[in-house]
Simulated scan of single mutants.
Amino acid sequence: MAGRQLASKWLKTEALLTDPQVAPYIPATESYGGDTLVSMLAEHEMVVIKPIVGTGGNGVIRIQKDGTGYLVTHKRRTVHADTLNSLLQVLGRMKLKRRYMIQQGIHLAKIHGRPLDYRVKVVKERGRWEFRAMLGRLASPGLFVTNICKGGTLLRCRHALRLSLPHINAREKRNEMRRVTRQCISIMESRFPGIGELGFDYGLDNEGKIWILEVNTRPS
């Protein structure tokens, strides 16, 4: 059951942030602009800029502080900016025409240097929500986005957790993702009646903390 579609990442993130139990799982998020870029970089070592409406990891930009300036990564290309002004010039040359949001960057756990996240898919059938998939997505070598359409590789969730974070309890993390997913379903269904399927993208950082990276109403 496909149900209602909602393209705006901003509206979905905003809805989840209203819940005090779910909000701690969401990276700091702002509407993108020059001022918010400066303030976010003052607080975070890494930020990610993404289109408010977009799929497949298209248009996503990562900015990291490296001690001598900023590393700006888009697709497989990384350029260095020495100052904030030069960083803004680099971004200006990218001609960001769509509306964007900016989020705290998460240092995702990796397997052989490749970032990893998790897709949890749920579907509403006969009035009940059912878990349909919980899979790891391993980024293609050289990319920081994990989308399968960008060459990412699917892994069994348990296997991915054990390879990337051998010091954590994989079963506990899977159960936590399920629990958070159930909380999010309740919020999303209340705020956006008519949705019939959801795909939650979770990231685990190097300490094993779970983060909600994105929610999709038409998950692949």
Rank of each mutant, 00 (worst) to 15 (best):
D66F: 13
M188D: 00
I148R: 02
V48N: 03
F192N: 04
L204I: 06
C184L: 05
E125P: 10
V90D: 15
I49G: 01
V72Y: 06
R156G: 10
H107P: 13
R162M: 14
G67R: 14
L154E: 09
E214W: 00
N206P: 05
V215K: 03
I63G: 06
S220A: 15
L213T: 01
L213F: 07
L84I: 13
R114L: 07
A2S: 07
S39Y: 11
H167W: 14
H44E: 14
F144R: 06
R178F: 08
A139C: 10
A133E: 03
A109D: 01
T68L: 15
T36W: 09
H167M: 07
Q103L: 03
V60C: 09
Y32W: 14
R218A: 04
T153V: 10
N85K: 15
H44R: 13
R162H: 14
Q183N: 11
Y70W: 10
P20Y: 11
L87W: 02
L37W: 15
R137V: 05
H167V: 02
C149M: 07
I185W: 00
P24S: 04
M1H: 06
K12F: 08
T18G: 03
P219L: 07
I212S: 00
F200D: 00
M134Y: 10
P115E: 06
T73D: 09
R99P: 10
V22T: 08
E197F: 00
L108Q: 05
C157G: 03
R98E: 13
G69R: 07
G33C: 15
S164L: 03
D35L: 15
E125S: 09
Y202R: 01
C149N: 06
G33Y: 14
L11H: 10
G136K: 03
R119T: 01
M1W: 05
R191E: 09
R93A: 12
K110L: 11
L87D: 11
L11C: 15
K9G: 03
D82P: 10
E45I: 12
A2Y: 14
K97Q: 12
V53R: 01
G105V: 08
L17T: 09
G54I: 03
T68C: 15
S220P: 08
R114V: 04
D201P: 00
A139P: 06
A109G: 04
S164C: 04
E207V: 14
K124V: 05
G142A: 11
A2N: 08
T73M: 09
L154K: 14
R126W: 07
L161V: 03
M188R: 04
R218Q: 05
